[in-house]
């Protein structure tokens, strides 16, 4: 701190130490040119990956049963969002807390999402405008009580291992059975709209010709099923450091290692509140590192490591040769 007393020039370096001519502007210009050349070469030789977003249409084409499972999960209120909790709804499934410290709960519902309604029923209702058959199916669904609806879904889920999808139609072992209710037809309609490529648009709706820029609801549809299956194939899961991985053989967000590392080790990898714990840890660690100048011990580590002797070796040698004692 004492150095700042010397006046506006701050450090006493200019008084005590010998100087040499230096051209900062030239150095900066050369650095820009050098990095530019490096970036040009890397871009030319290595390019970048661009794996298109995973769409419901692609899921229907490549693994239709996965979309069926997803839809049934939503109808049966078993998907990851149905009971997620804030900020989407009042569920408890994904709420994290550490004792009384529950910021997720305190924040409350700010982005209301009803996964069954938003991701399945609303797109079907939009479809019904163009197709009266869909309207009748939805009317049948609405006629059932809550318990009845869940029972229909459960009955279909029970026979799913013996079922398949052929030509965008769900083929069940006992077709037309009364215990399935309108669910098989709802699945067929859902497969159809997904095949058309309009499912995500039908979820998020439209404001006339203006683009919808908030895609929360459509993105939440596949997150826990198809997205995860896709990411598994790309080796990008969270327990494989997926948050910071890039598709293909490209470096990812390497600078996040000190955060994503936490998810791999106890207690984080087993905690129900891993995210909260990891974010808090990183916040505290970062704050400590930021405050290094004021923390005895931590601020002395460079003196113990002695790598500064290598950095300033010419300076020390000159001082010694001149017989100086000051350094």
């Amino acid at each position: 701190m004492s150095a700042t007393k010397g006046g506006p020039k701050g450090s006493g370096a200019k008084k005590t130490y010998e100087e040499m001519p230096y051209d900062l502007v030239k150095e900066g210009t050369l650095a820009v040119l050098a990095v530019g050349a490096l970036v040009l070469v890397l871009s030319g030789v290595l390019s970048t990956p661009d794996v298109p977003a995973l769409t419901a249409q692609q899921v229907v084409q490549q693994d239709p049963m996965l979309l069926v499972t997803t839809e049934l999960n939503h109808l049966g209120l078993q998907d990851a969002i149905a009971n997620y909790g804030p900020p989407y709804n009042h569920g408890t499934g994904a709420v994290q807390s550490l004792g009384p410290f529950a910021p997720q709960q305190w924040a409350g519902v700010q982005v209301p999402v009803n996964a069954r309604k938003d991701d399945v029923l609303i797109p079907l209702h939009r479809m019904a405008v163009m197709d009266p058959a869909v309207k009748r199916t939805l009317a049948a669904w609405d006629h059932g009580s809550s318990a009845q609806q869940l029972a229909w879904v459960a009955n279909v889920q029970k026979v799913l291992p013996q079922s398949s999808v052929r030509h965008d139609r769900l083929v069940l072992p006992n077709p037309g059975a009364v215990q399935y209710g309108p669910v098989p037809q709802m699945v067929n309609d859902y497969l159809r709209i997904a095949r058309s490529g309009l499912l995500e648009a039908a979820i998020d709706g439209a404001v006339g010709p203006v683009p919808v820029l908030n895609r929360t609801k459509a993105l939440l549809l596949l997150e826990n099923t198809a997205d995860t299956a896709y990411a598994t194939k790309l080796n990008m899961l969270g327990d494989e450091w997926g948050v910071m991985k890039e598709t293909g053989n490209y470096p990812g967000a390497v600078w996040l290692w000190y955060y994503t590392l936490l998810y791999q080790i106890p207690p984080y990898n087993t905690s129900d509140s891993a995210d909260l714990l990891a974010v808090l840890t990183v916040t505290i660690v970062t704050f400590i590192l930021m405050m290094t100048p004021f923390i005895p011990g931590l601020r002395s580590i460079p003196r113990w490591l002695k790598i500064y002797r290598l950095i300033w070796r010419d300076h020390y040698r000159e001082t010694r040769e001149r017989g100086g004692t000051q350094s």
Binding site: P49, V51, V59, M65, L66, A229, L234, T247, G248, Y250
Partner: peptide, 13 residues
């Protein structure tokens, strides 16, 4: 569940 079905356009790194 037939999750083997999805085909990303490139291999995992």
């Amino acid at each position: 569940m037939g999750q083997g079905g999805l085909r990303p356009p490139l291999q995992a790194g």
